[in-house]
Amino acid sequence: MDLRNYMDSTYLKTAVQAGLSEGENTAVVIQVIQEAIEESFKLVMLRPQYVALARTEIDQAASKVLVGTVIDFPEGKATLEAKIQEATTAIADGADELDFVVNYRLFQQGGVAQVRDQIWKCTQLTLSAGKTVKWIIEVAALTDLEIVQLTTLVKKVALSKFEERQYERIYVKSSTGFYPVEAGKSNGATPASIVLMMENANPLPVKAAGGIRSRSEAEQMIALGVKRLGTSSAKSIVDHADSTSDY
């Protein structure tokens, strides 16, 4: 099994979060892009402002690495219009895959109809552009029941609004990797949360993200059935090395 085929190699820190200048952070982004090209990872996942840069670097290298970005990241609380605007720009800049953060707080507050509408319309925009969409449900913010309910909601929208041939391009994704939690608790994918997602997402694919830093963790997630892994430790994982990533 070549883990590279599952890897969404990820760098989503802002310059402030990384303790770097904007120029230094851009240099890190370029390093991550070049690493993805050299390692032939499935995709490189970056913030929207770096999509055009990644598209240029990858095209110049004649690489098959896909360009991914996050939309309404990391809280997911923007309006539908704001989500659409950000996604439209990312597509124009050359993104192949868009990972939207679901408005999970609105869902928890009972705004199911509004969340359903956002999932439908943002998915429609993305698929109509020939791209892949992933919906981040943020498992660390949810109860087990809410994980089941929100995963099921994404699935129901897909099955009711789109054709079967499109299902493979509509993912349910576990986490942003940036949700604040108490020390010792996971803010990303766990085996328990992924099992719940797998049981309720089918026939949609699942992406595990957040806190995956070792080869054994990656292999465990794949064994559970996920189709993609979002990790800032992609090279360490494929090299069987220790990861120094903190998200």
Rank of each mutant, 00 (worst) to 15 (best):
A189Q: 10
V67K: 02
R228H: 08
L196N: 02
A62N: 15
S9C: 05
G23W: 09
S21G: 15
L46I: 14
E138N: 10
L12G: 07
M221C: 11
E182S: 07
S236P: 09
Q85R: 12
D144N: 13
I136G: 09
K235R: 15
V172H: 00
T88E: 15
K131I: 04
E164C: 03
Q17P: 00
S174Y: 02
A61E: 09
R4I: 04
V70P: 03
V195E: 14
D93F: 07
K227E: 14
A18E: 03
G225R: 06
A183F: 10
T89G: 07
D144C: 01
E22Y: 08
K227D: 09
A95P: 08
G23R: 08
Y104A: 04
G76R: 00
P191T: 11
D93W: 07
V29W: 02
V102G: 01
V115M: 07
M221H: 13
D99E: 15
G23A: 13
N200Y: 09
T190C: 10
G68A: 09
K131W: 03
P191W: 13
G230F: 02
G76I: 00
V101M: 06
F162P: 11
V51Y: 12
Q108A: 10
V206L: 04
M198D: 00
S174Q: 03
V28G: 00
D59V: 12
L145C: 00
A18D: 06
R116M: 08
Q31H: 11
N187R: 13
A192M: 06
I91C: 05
G94T: 04
E168D: 13
D2K: 14
R165G: 07
V206H: 02
P205C: 08
Q31D: 12
A18S: 12
I33L: 06
L43Q: 14
T89S: 12
W120K: 15
A27Y: 04
S186L: 05
L98P: 10
Q31R: 14
T14H: 02
A15Q: 06
E81Y: 00
Y247C: 14
S232N: 11
I136E: 12
F100L: 04
G94H: 05
D242F: 13
V101R: 03
L196A: 02
Q108I: 04
